[in-house]
Amino acid sequence: MIDHLGISCADLPAAAAFYDDVLGALGFSRVLDYEVALGYGSAGKPDFWISTQPDGGGPSSGPDREMHLAFVAESADAVRAFFEAAVSSGAEVLHEPRHWPEYHEGYFAAFVRDPDGNNVEAVCHSVPPA
């Protein structure tokens, strides 16, 4: 059901030091490292992300920063169905369904903002690029 989740951090280097230590003690490690986001997991797959806190106010800043949650989708059609259901329910569109090759070749996902301001994604990891 859940593919991965992410949280925003006010101080990414401090959060990275903390999660490097505590997740390392559990047998997990940092598997992806972007300038503004770090992914932790095992076998090369990031299941937990920390990222910089966005600036500028709105639902993704301040003490009630957004959370990111990604649900597993079995196909590109399922990602599209998730997206259509979210839009029909009034969700704010963050990213329409598409491939995300910067994550990996088969990554196909859509992102919306839920009624509480959280970034919610549906992702399928096995959709070949067009």
Rank of each mutant, 00 (worst) to 15 (best):
D20S: 04
G58V: 04
H99N: 05
V79E: 06
D47Y: 15
V79P: 04
D55S: 14
L23S: 03
A43R: 08
I50N: 00
A10D: 12
G24N: 02
R30F: 13
L23A: 03
V79R: 06
P54W: 06
Y19V: 01
V31Y: 03
Y19M: 02
I50A: 01
P97N: 01
F28I: 05
L94F: 11
D11C: 04
Y19F: 12
P54Y: 02
I50K: 03
A14E: 08
A73K: 02
A73T: 02
R30H: 09
V31M: 05
R98Y: 07
F83H: 08
S75E: 04
G62M: 07
A76P: 01
A91F: 12
G24K: 03
F18G: 00
L23I: 02
A25C: 11
D47M: 15
F48W: 02
D64C: 12
L94M: 13
R65P: 03
S61L: 08
G90H: 05
P13D: 00
M67K: 13
C9K: 05
A43M: 05
E74S: 10
G44K: 01
R65W: 11
L38A: 09
H4Q: 04
D33L: 13
A70P: 03
S88F: 10
P54D: 01
S88T: 09
F48I: 04
A43I: 00
K45Q: 15
K45E: 11
D77L: 08
H4V: 04
Y19K: 01
W100K: 10
A10C: 07
V93G: 05
P59N: 12
L32K: 15
S88P: 04
P59I: 11
A86L: 04
P54R: 01
V87W: 10
L12N: 01
L32R: 15
S42P: 04
V72M: 08
A37C: 09
